[in-house]
């Protein structure tokens, strides 16, 4: 796996050399695009992160976790994972922090940590993605696609916890 990324670079660079592309110029121009792109994301990021922080500080996320835990364990999701399942759609860094905490607390090879890893690996930060992808566009009705993604992520979590019992 470690060879993959250097190999991609080498192939692209050799190919560009053959096609007589001005590599340094184009590389810099590409990075220029990255600067503009990152700056264009910043307003959305700042707004979404303010919301997440506020949600956390207001202890509402903790209350929601306590409220939903019994329901989740009924469906086979260990109660330790409730918070992770709830955070993941909103915040990538928040969920990585929480995943690290779970791994350290219960041990990397425990059932809980393995479930957490599978859930983490098979889901994405839905709200962040929707904000970023459609940032430059006019009004879009994303309610249904977001709902579809959340439903499927939830079912996958149930499936993941089930699979981890056997594998």
């Amino acid at each position: 796996m470690a060879y993959l990324i250097p190999a991609i670079f080498l192939i692209v660079l050799v190919f560009a050399l053959v096609k007589k592309v001005k590599i340094y110029d184009e590389f810099s121009l590409g990075i220029g695009e990255a600067v503009r792109f990152t700056l264009s994301l910043l307003p959305c990021l700042a707004a979404v992160f303010m919301m997440c922080e506020l949600f956390e500080v207001s202890t509402l996320s903790q209350r929601l976790t306590d409220l939903l835990s019994p329901l989740f364990s009924l469906l086979g999701i260990p109660k330790e994972l409730t918070k992770l399942v709830l955070i993941k759609p909103f915040s990538g860094s928040g969920s990585i922090a929480y995943l690290t905490e779970i791994i350290q607390k219960y041990g990397a090879d425990s059932y809980i940590a393995r479930c957490a890893c599978v859930c983490f690996g098979s889901s994405e930060t839905v709200f962040y993605i929707s904000a970023v992808y459609f940032a430059g566009l006019k009004k879009k009705n994303l309610a249904a696609p977001i709902a579809i993604v959340l439903i499927s992520t939830f079912f996958t979590t149930i499936l993941g916890c089930l699979i981890c019992k056997f594998m």
């Binding site: 692209v12 190919f15 560009a16 096609k19 590599i23 590409g30 990255a34």
Partner: peptide
């Protein structure tokens, strides 16, 4: 950056 090189070539 890399993708721009790939695109130009």
């Amino acid at each position: 950056g890399l993708s721009r090189i790939a695109e130009k070539s």
